Simulated assay, not measured.
Amino acid sequence: MKQIVPLLLVATLAGCGQSDSPRQADVLTVEELAADPARLKELRQQCKTERAQLGDVLCNRVAEATNQRFFGEGGTPYTPPEESPRF
């Protein structure tokens, strides 16, 4: 009985180790995604269909990169027209 407990403990800890391959979310940054529109489009489609496989971290970075490309840096202030529009 005393030999089984340490064996089970070692087996349990071995199963909880980190995976060998790094995840995509650890590799790609928002800036890298925003700079590569083809890769961004591909990942956006994958996040729509396979979010559970890709993970929330990567899909959140994809969404942030999409927003960054759409809105830009936000340096252009809104300037309303001088005359109000007539409908």
Rank of each mutant, 00 (worst) to 15 (best):
K2G: 04
Q3V: 06
I4W: 09
I4D: 10
I4P: 01
V5K: 07
P6W: 07
P6L: 04
L7H: 03
L7N: 06
L7S: 06
L8D: 04
L8E: 10
L8F: 10
L9N: 00
V10T: 03
V10L: 05
A11T: 03
A11Q: 04
A11W: 05
T12R: 01
T12M: 03
L13W: 11
L13A: 14
L13Q: 08
A14G: 03
G15Y: 05
C16F: 05
C16P: 01
G17M: 12
G17K: 11
Q18N: 13
Q18P: 03
S19T: 12
D20C: 08
D20Y: 14
S21H: 14
P22R: 07
R23D: 05
Q24D: 06
A25Q: 15
D26H: 14
D26C: 01
V27I: 14
V27M: 03
L28F: 15
T29C: 04
V30T: 13
V30A: 03
E31F: 05
E31D: 14
E32C: 00
L33Q: 02
L33A: 05
A34D: 09
A34L: 08
A35K: 13
P37G: 04
A38E: 15
A38C: 00
A38S: 10
R39S: 14
R39K: 15
R39T: 12
L40M: 03
K41W: 08
K41Q: 15
K41D: 15
E42R: 09
E42T: 10
L43H: 06
R44K: 15
R44M: 05
R44A: 12
R44N: 10
Q45K: 14
C47Y: 04
K48I: 00
T49I: 07
E50F: 08
E50W: 05
E50C: 01
E50T: 11
E50P: 00
R51C: 05
R51P: 00
R51W: 08
A52K: 11
L54R: 11
G55T: 02
G55C: 03
L58K: 09
L58H: 04
C59S: 09
C59L: 04
C59Q: 10
N60I: 01
R61L: 04
R61Q: 15
V62Y: 11
V62I: 01
V62W: 01
V62C: 02
V62N: 14
A63S: 13
A63T: 09
E64R: 09
E64C: 00
E64F: 02
A65L: 09
A65C: 09
A65S: 05
T66Q: 13
N67L: 13
N67G: 10
N67H: 07
R69F: 00
F70I: 07
F70H: 10
F71K: 09
F71M: 08
F71W: 11
G72L: 08
G72N: 11
G74C: 10
G75A: 04
G75R: 14
T76L: 12
P77W: 05
P77V: 09
P77D: 14
Y78P: 01
T79C: 01
T79M: 09
P80L: 12
P80E: 15
P81W: 08
P81I: 00
P81M: 04
E82D: 13
E83D: 14
E83F: 06
S84Y: 10
S84I: 02
P85R: 13
P85L: 07
R86V: 11
R86K: 11
R86C: 07
F87I: 07
F87H: 12
